[in-house]
Design a protein around this nucleic acid. Structure first.
Lengths: 238, 238
DNA sequence: CGGTCGTTTGAAGTGGTTCAAGCCTTGTGG
DNA sequence: CCACAAGGCTTGAACCACTTCAAACGACCG
């Protein structure tokens, strides 16, 4: 599946290259689609950490993440929060107006760079853009399917399994965009973020992270996961 | 396998009326769309209780439920199950080939009648069918949004809240298709189904159901919920 | 009428929460 | 360059929500 190709031109390190890499590997983006994305004059939107990524108008707008970490989340009246998913470079996400009580909100966890998909795709119907549109649609679909896995995590897994399983997902996804190296990867999440995603208390996330560390499955320190044992973790949350 | 019977008589219209009601109230189906659905000669597919609703080919196929209860679920290796959602009359659902390990399976909980959406919509592009297609797409979208609520339930609510909140959802949805009467409604779910949907043990579902009963919020007996206090339950899981 | 499946209840155990305090790291301003 | 504040991480102790196991009971079905 990882069909690593030299679609990325190294010369100047374009922000968009990582997203192109992700769409290529996970969603079968073709060269022509990559070229379309690279050449389009769509402005990069920037959101500071801890701000909402809201659409311009009042309709849901798909965005393509170029860099940074974002998440879909909902907050309930008493302040409890649930994070539904994390969005990384190369992921397409739908951002909705914050008002929609029955939906969710997209929030930047770190500084985030993204581009507006529809703005990028509007206009000419050349094959490059069509391919890009297809890949982005597929990316959204993949994200939708991941939500099933997330529900299983929340409903039917123990705390260690939840933590391990989520790290596994992040590992695999970051691998796709060349953000894994030397058996480790950067993780821009606090233990509170993990807790909100996993339906646990922060304290307990901390303790189960410790379990993973002592079992030599993964070590999270200073915004980085190291000593990652993919096989071991996969066995944990089979 | 779908056991489709070609009863091309009037009774068929009756089956479809409930779905039409649901699509009209929840998804803005217009008269012309309703007429299109009623007149189309698509055979009704029937699935017995506890069987998988699988697509004919190997691609995901949308179905429109006419009667009965179905659910989306995934089973993990050790036998634990997670139910993601319930599908009732008037709901559109996507059924996928059972092999897709990363997705989920659609299972009939009672005998289920449904029709294949694409078969129904193929052919002429009259405005009636277009309206129908739009309403069905909207129904799928509504179902997708409900998954966020389900994730909050699993991750951030206590057991009583989970049970109450789910009953509330079912009440509101059944109300839309005129299946609520006298403050109660039929519920074709065992406590084990509820447990699998809510990430709890059957025993605990039983106990929290008891809590709801003693607090006079809702009583589940013999496949029926009665004494339903909508306000009280809404306050419970605000 | 007996068998099966679903529900109900009790008692004991465990996994996760809560509260509270101390520590470490990072960033900020003097 | 140091001092200090703020936010995140870590740990302990007590508590409670939910699970597990086991047994009995009730409803439905052939």
């Amino acid at each position: 599946m990882p069909q690593s190709q030299s679609t990325a031109k190294k010369p100047q390190n374009n922000q968009r290259d990582r997203a192109i890499l992700g769409l290529t590997r996970s969603c079968g983006l073709q060269d022509e689609g990559a070229r379309a994305l690279r050449s389009v004059a769509s402005p990069t939107e920037r959101y500071p950490a801890a701000t909402l990524i809201t659409p311009a108008g009042s309709t849901p707008r798909p965005k393509l993440i170029l860099s940074g970490w974002a998440c879909e989340l909902r907050t309930i009246e008493d302040g409890r929060r649930q994070i539904f998913s994390f969005a990384l470079a190369g992921d397409a996400v739908v951002s909705r107006p914050a008002s929609a009580a029955h939906s969710c909100v997209l929030m930047a966890l770190t500084a985030v760079e993204c581009i507006d998909v529809e703005r990028t795709l509007s206009g000419a119907q050349d094959p490059g853009r069509q391919d890009l549109a297809r890949a982005i649609e597929q990316s959204l679909q993949v994200a939708r399917e991941r939500r099933y896995t997330q529900a299983v995590r929340l409903g039917r897994r123990s705390a260690v399994e939840r933590v391990g399983d989520l790290l596994l997902e992040l590992y695999d996804r970051l691998q796709m965009v060349d953000l894994v190296e030397a058996g480790g990867f950067p993780i821009a999440l606090t233990q509170e973020h993990l807790a909100d995603a996993l339906g646990l208390s922060t304290v307990h996330v901390n303790r189960r992270l410790r379990t993973l560390r002592t079992r030599k499955l993964a070590t999270l320190r200073f915004g980085r996961v190291s000593g990652f044992d993919r096989e071991g973790l996969a066995a944990l949350a089979r």
